[in-house]
Amino acid sequence: MSDQPTAPASVPRPHQALTRPLPDLAAWTSHLRGMEIPVLASTAEQLEIWRANEDAADAHLLGEILNKDPLMTLKLLAHAASQRSSRLLTDAETVTAALVLLGITPFFKAFGPQPTVEDRLADRPDAMAGLQRVLHRAERAARFALGFAAHRADPDAEVIHSAALLHDFSEMLMWCEAPDLALEVLHRQQADSTLRSVAVQREVLHVELGDLEQTLMKAWRLPELLTHITDDKKGNDPQVRCVTLAVRLARHTSERWENPAVPDDLVEIGSLLNLSPAHTLKLVHELDGVI
């Protein structure tokens, strides 16, 4: 038990968003490691429903709920990594595996009523809209990546799904923790589509989000395979390419399929999956629910 006094529950401390960039990767890593990560309100509501009916909950049922929320997925995998015994030979690489590792009762004990992004950004509809775009993109990327992995009969398909879902979690955290800075990055990219994302990130945030993500995953001791598959710089690995190409396609088609970058994406996806251009387009449309 901590000896530190706690604030009365009736007087919650208002969240103070960052308005200026932190100086470097180490500072960002330290700050984001210490933040309380909010989750989607729909996730928080479902958890409370099942908390009241814990005996009927199981890992697969809860996994289906949590797998739809990248932020809750991140929290759970980080917590499971912190609880992993040195006697265990394998990491909990998926949400379901983490729930099995922890057990249902310990899970609910560790995760009480969750703070939500909707509350965090209640007075920032612009930031909420930005976060929702990233969340929607992550959901589509995860669907594409799982489809690519299944086509390749990859035994780690579920981990590849998780990697794509989490691929842009540092951007999600930025919308929650530093919405003004996240908006500045977005506005600069919208004003000049030729700007490279990493260049804008370095200028506005003093850090590349991909580097921040990798450093956080290692700091949280997330599973090695998951961390590896999420690293775009390991691009020659077919599993990494599944994720990278899925994320890229989801980004390029976030508004319309007529984006001029899409044909090149389809060529690379076809090469990975050994499919013709026509069959590649048919597959990605099916995965995205496009008729």
Score class of each variant (00 low, 15 high):
90 T>F: 13
44 A>F: 05
155 P>M: 12
90 T>C: 02
92 A>N: 01
157 A>D: 14
166 L>K: 04
58 D>L: 02
76 L>W: 12
43 T>H: 11
119 D>E: 14
159 V>E: 14
138 A>I: 00
151 H>Q: 15
120 R>N: 13
146 L>C: 12
148 F>M: 11
62 L>P: 05
45 E>D: 14
59 A>R: 05
158 E>S: 14
94 T>F: 08
84 R>T: 02
92 A>L: 00
118 E>D: 14
39 V>I: 07
95 V>R: 04
89 L>R: 09
54 E>P: 00
65 I>R: 15
86 S>W: 00
41 A>F: 10
157 A>T: 04
166 L>G: 08
87 R>V: 02
93 E>W: 02
77 L>T: 08
152 R>S: 15
140 R>W: 10
42 S>C: 04
152 R>C: 09
162 S>P: 00
154 D>F: 09
153 A>Y: 09
139 E>G: 13
76 L>N: 11
58 D>H: 12
144 F>R: 06
140 R>I: 03
48 E>M: 09
95 V>A: 05
116 T>F: 12
97 A>E: 07
58 D>I: 00
97 A>R: 03
123 D>K: 09
64 E>L: 10
104 I>W: 13
133 R>C: 08
121 L>I: 02
68 K>A: 14
144 F>T: 04
150 A>F: 12
62 L>D: 15
111 F>H: 06
89 L>M: 01
69 D>A: 08
139 E>D: 15
92 A>V: 01
132 Q>N: 15
122 A>F: 11
